[in-house]
């Protein structure tokens, strides 16, 4: 593996890991379902960055872009569904606090 390629990937890899860290932290600590979804979005940003950087590092940008565009599509679908579910939860509970989604336990 060429040294430049590794270094390029490492730089963006570090960035992606940090964003991932931020996303997971927020996912674990936030009290709002909307913020939960925003955290999930951050997580997908991080992997997207990882993917593009990997593609660039090995000169497979076409494949990486094709994958990224597909992922963006999937992201949209997930977000739309999640938002729909959150809206319904809001309709039931008049709140989007994550505390309302812990009834199923044991």
């Amino acid at each position: 593996m060429p040294k430049e390629a590794i270094e390029l990937f490492s730089l963006f890899g570090v960035g992606a890991l940090l964003v991932m860290l931020v996303g997971f932290y927020s996912l674990l600590t936030t009290r709002s379902l909307i913020r939960v979804m925003i955290s999930v979005e951050l997580l997908s940003k991080s992997v997207m960055l990882l993917l593009i950087a990997a593609g660039r590092a090995v000169n497979r940008t076409a494949l990486a872009q094709a994958m990224a565009i597909t992922l963006i599509n999937i992201e949209v679908a997930v977000v739309v569904v999640a938002v729909g579910i959150i809206l319904c939860i809001y309709r039931h509970h008049k709140t989007v606090d994550t505390a309302v989604v812990q009834e199923i336990k044991g």
Partner: peptide, 14 residues
């Protein structure tokens, strides 16, 4: 085990 399943998604993510 049942008590450990507190229903919080965050716990499950963890």
């Amino acid at each position: 085990l049942a008590t450990a399943h507190r229903g919080r998604y965050a716990l499950y993510v963890l």
